[in-house]
Nucleic acid binder design. Structure first.
Lengths: 110, 110
DNA sequence: TCAAAGTATTCGGATATACGAATAGTTATA
DNA sequence: TATAACTATTCGTATATCCGAATACTTTGA
């Protein structure tokens, strides 16, 4: 079995799809909130300050792209992170961002 | 100095902006190509198989979000990665993706 | 200063994504 | 089975993003 160019392209598209799932502040907040403690939709919505339908729609995007999975608990649905490394990747990017901000601030101090 | 809620929100927005810069297959290919060897716009365009204007537009997005920086070399412009950890983060996400694909394949094998 | 090479931008149109509001679906329990 | 609680979807609309084609800008060297 060998990687054809079109398979590689498909993986790159999936790679981009994951990044695109991360490309919204509310979804980033949702992922961190779920990581901190798996919870149902309404609780997550309250936690990050968005409406229930908005939370449901954002969670659907995260679910479709495989970043979270849903477990039904009675009438509610509990969302879980599928892979801790998603948080690691987010943390890494946030570190890059914070370093950049710190660097710019240091330039202003001079 | 303390983080106000609105400053935190702003950082999360910048965090999402970085992810949004990664949320396109051609920009992912550009970042890996630049990482492999800093090059000018036309060479990068040929390398990943897109037009020069498309490459220029995608590079502009990466530049505006601080993922790459441009250095003029005579009539051409050489693009460089600003932070190796961007590749680390992309690699991490690709590993998550590959593991998921492998897992699904193993389910089919059973 | 003019032509060539390289890069960036603009334009118009197509597609994607986001929201609030309203509503429909699902589950448990009385 | 009826109700309450929770979740998901639909609708209409607004905004963002992408592309190809054409064009404008910048730099070098004749």
């Amino acid at each position: 079995m060998e990687d054809t160019p079109s398979l590689e392209r498909e993986v790159t598209q999936l790679h981009a799809d994951i990044c695109s799932a991360l490309a919204d502040p509310r979804r980033i907040l949702l992922l961190y909130a779920i990581f901190q403690s798996p919870r149902n939709v309404s609780d997550l919505a309250v936690d990050i300050g968005i409406s229930q339908p908005a939370a449901s729609r954002h969670l659907k995007i995260l679910r479709e792209r495989g970043l979270v999975h849903a477990i039904r608990r009675g009438a509610s649905v509990e969302y879980h992170l599928t892979d801790q490394r998603l948080i690691d990747a987010l943390d890494l990017l946030r570190t890059v961002l914070r370093d950049r901000i710190a660097y710019r601030a240091s330039l202003l101090d001079q």
